[in-house]
Simulated scan of single mutants.
Amino acid sequence: MAVKLRLRREGTTKRPFYRVVAADSRSPRDGRFIEIIGQYRPLENPSGIEIDNERAVYWLRNGAQPTEAVQNLLRISGAWEEFKPGDAPKRDRSAQNEQPKLSKKARAKAAEAAEAAASAEPEEATEGGE
């Protein structure tokens, strides 16, 4: 089940407020949800933001994907800084150590440059030694 952190609209016509919820990505916007983790009241001045940072970080560390609006709210509340996107489940480190894939032309140019550099180094070494 893919979990998203998103806004659920509440309130009356022209008087909205939102709840920040953890919900299955397949459920409708105002439909079923797993847990309420906060509220956002955009009509207050300044906007009211109440988020349970502990629960938000818990869901983020377990792979929940926030929408852009929720990600901005998490930054304001400080939960995003606690989470640090690097804290997400670790990917395979061997993929990070691989060199970027190059086209055939780029690989050929890189090979030519390496050969030219290798052939130029011994000549410089012999000239400096004499």
Score class of each variant (00 low, 15 high):
Ala2Trp: 07
Ala2Val: 10
Lys4Phe: 11
Leu7His: 12
Leu7Asp: 08
Leu7Tyr: 02
Arg9Phe: 06
Thr13Ser: 12
Thr13Lys: 11
Lys14His: 10
Pro16Ala: 08
Pro16Val: 04
Phe17Thr: 05
Val20Phe: 05
Val21Asn: 05
Ala22Thr: 04
Ala22Glu: 04
Ala22Val: 04
Ala23Val: 04
Ala23Leu: 04
Asp24Arg: 03
Asp24Val: 14
Ser25Leu: 03
Ser25Gln: 04
Arg26Asp: 09
Pro28Val: 06
Arg29Ser: 12
Asp30Ser: 09
Gly31Thr: 02
Arg32Val: 14
Ile34Lys: 13
Ile34Val: 10
Glu35Lys: 05
Glu35Met: 02
Ile37Trp: 00
Gly38Thr: 09
Gln39Ile: 01
Tyr40Gln: 00
Arg41Lys: 12
Arg41Thr: 06
Pro42Ser: 04
Pro42Trp: 01
Pro42Asn: 10
Leu43Ala: 05
Glu44Gly: 00
Glu44Gln: 10
Ile49Glu: 00
Ile49Pro: 00
Ile49Leu: 00
Glu50Thr: 11
Ile51Tyr: 00
Asp52Ser: 06
Asn53Ser: 03
Glu54Gly: 04
Glu54Gln: 02
Arg55Tyr: 03
Ala56Asn: 03
Val57Glu: 04
Val57Leu: 01
Val57Ile: 07
Trp59Cys: 00
Leu60Glu: 04
Asn62Phe: 06
Gly63Thr: 15
Gly63Phe: 12
Gln65Ile: 09
Pro66Cys: 01
Pro66Thr: 07
Pro66Tyr: 01
Pro66Glu: 00
Ala69Lys: 08
Ala69Arg: 07
Ala69Tyr: 07
Ala69Trp: 02
Ala69Val: 07
Val70Gly: 04
Gln71Gly: 11
Gln71Asp: 10
Gln71Asn: 15
Asn72Pro: 09
Leu73Ser: 02
Arg75Ile: 07
Arg75Lys: 11
Arg75Met: 05
Ile76Arg: 11
Ser77Ala: 08
Trp80Ser: 06
Trp80Arg: 00
Glu81Lys: 04
Glu82Phe: 00
Glu82Val: 00
Phe83Leu: 03
Lys84Gly: 13
Asp87His: 05
Ala88Asn: 09
Pro89Ile: 09
Arg91Gly: 11
Arg91Asp: 08
Arg93Val: 14
Arg93Pro: 14
Ser94Glu: 15
Ser94Asn: 08
Ser94His: 13
Ala95Pro: 06
Ala95Thr: 14
Ala95Trp: 11
Ala95Tyr: 10
Gln96His: 09
Gln99Cys: 07
Pro100Cys: 05
Lys101Phe: 06
Lys101Ser: 08
Ser103Asp: 14
Ser103Arg: 13
Lys105Glu: 14
Ala106His: 08
Ala106Met: 13
Lys109Pro: 02
Ala110Asn: 05
Ala111Arg: 09
Ala111Cys: 09
Ala111His: 13
Ala111Val: 15
Glu112Ala: 13
Glu112Asn: 13
Glu112His: 10
Ala114Phe: 14
Glu115Ile: 08
Glu115Ser: 06
Ala117Phe: 15
Ala118Gly: 15
Ser119Gln: 15
Ser119Glu: 13
Ser119Cys: 14
Ala120Ser: 15
Glu121Leu: 13
Glu121Val: 15
Pro122Gly: 06
Pro122Ala: 05
Glu123Phe: 08
Glu124Asp: 14
Ala125Arg: 10
Ala125Met: 12
Thr126Phe: 14
Glu127Cys: 06
Glu127Tyr: 08
Gly128Val: 10
Glu130Ser: 09
